[in-house]
Amino acid sequence: MAFVIAPMRTRLGRTLAGCLGLVLLLSGCAKSSYQYDWSIFFNSIFRPDGFILAGVWLTLSISVISQVIGIVLGIFGALGKTARLLPARWLANLYVWFFRGTPLLVQITFFFFGLSVTKIYTWPPINLFGLTIPGEIQAGIFALGVNEGAYMSEIVRAGILSIDPGQLEAAKSLGMTYARAMRRIVLPQAARVIVPPLGNEFNNMLKTTSLLVILGNVPELYVTFSRKNGSGPTSFHPFELFLAAAVWYLLLTTIWSIIQAFIERRLGRGTAGERPASIRERVFGLTRPDARTIGTITGGR
């Protein structure tokens, strides 16, 4: 493995060559008569048309519903993995093993095309409150949710394991059943540990919805901008359009990070901090992250 022990000089040379290549590529673009039209970029952000807004809305809706499904499945998955009953553990392990171990793109394809082609389930459109939800969106939400559930299982399990077993014992000694003790005592405390990685997951989810592009009929953000690139006055302006799409995604994830800070603050109730960090401090990173904000509980003082 020559490159591992390559002397500094060669690595520097490699980097320089890379930079040079990038410059050449960009200038090549400029030479190849690609005309930047930055108004497309700015209009897509500051004066979005109905398609873009619909795309934002769809991306958000799919993400939220899929994530909720993922959380619910994740709680069951985690309880299954920590269950005393062997078949429950098997089932949960099988679920997590399979859906974490196979590509999401394959799962999406299978759930929609695979099931409908074989006529196992053809995903007929559903009418909900006067809104027609096409099969592609249903299948997309289903696939994303089931996939997310596998990851959430591990996150929720980690949260449960982080709680002192004495909590479950105390709850049991007061006459609570396992289910009630989990619901009232363990899971609410585990939530504090779960939320930061859950934030990661939902952030990912917002962007991963773009994989639904392969289903064709799901005009979320990414698809909307791809279509714009292929039709009308915005045709063949991929840089401006996809940069604008990136800004939209960034906006969504930013809003989410603020919401996440709120949730963490709310769940921080009962931790040993003198004063919880304000949202502004959280979002802009003005306070040093402290272990107690994610829920280490000290016994006494």
């Binding site: 002192d164 004495g166 909590q167 014992e169 105390a170 709850a171 000694s173 005592i185 609410p188 405390q189 504090r192 109730r269 009962g270 931790t271 509980i297 016994g299 006494g300």
Partner: peptide
Amino acid sequence: IGMVFQRFNLFPHK
């Protein structure tokens, strides 16, 4: 049957 633990085991979120 009431039980009191060495480490108290109070519910910290309550």
